[in-house]
Design a protein around this nucleic acid. Sequence first.
DNA 1: TGCGTGATGCAT
DNA 2: TGCATCACGCAA
Length: 213
Amino acid sequence: MDRNRVLSSDAFKLVENYSILGKPIELTFFARHTEEVAIDLLGKILVKKERDGYLAARIVETEAYFGPGDPASHAHRGPTKRSKVMFEEPGTIYVYLCYGMHFMLNVVTEKKGIAGAVLIRAAEPLAGIDLMMQRRKTKSLDLLLSGPARLTQAFDINLRYNAKLANIQNGIFFIQDAYFPVRIVRSRRIGVPLIDGDNFRFYDADSKSVSKR
DNA sequence: TGCGTGATGCAT
DNA sequence: TGCATCACGCAA
């Protein structure tokens, strides 16, 4: 199936198709090494159920954040009021406010008690596009979800979701992508201090929705 | 390029 | 209690 066709397809029907092909992924998916999860999340579909239908987007950019030893991680000095979520059960959603105005969406990894999370930085819109464009006040498909704050704005993700499990009961979950192979590129993480050996950002080399900078 | 914006967490 | 700091986006 070609990607342009997907992007122009009717929103909510498409999600039904994906739902048939890929069930929501098990939370055990997240109970692995953070780097592995960050890579494997590329190509997965982020789905959020709303009153009037579904929002769906194909994840194309992620970053891995670890615990102690990773100075860029909120958890690097152990659990605090904010970062304790990163030590929670794998598959827990970690949302926090950045620069006083931007929400960041992460999913907790590793087994409970070990800090780790994957920041979801960008995605390609698949369903609920009109609603997302309305929220973002943009007409560009490429820019709609191409940045961590853009994505949370379009998906209306805020602190209410923090510390909730990423499962269907809570209105947000992932389903598997049965279609596209992903050509993965690694780079250093964005917006964090320069760290020797930082190579924990991952993106789909063929996606136009990857964030710039 | 610079600024808005507010919670966080370390230093007092 | 104070105050740098911050996984960013947008107007210019």
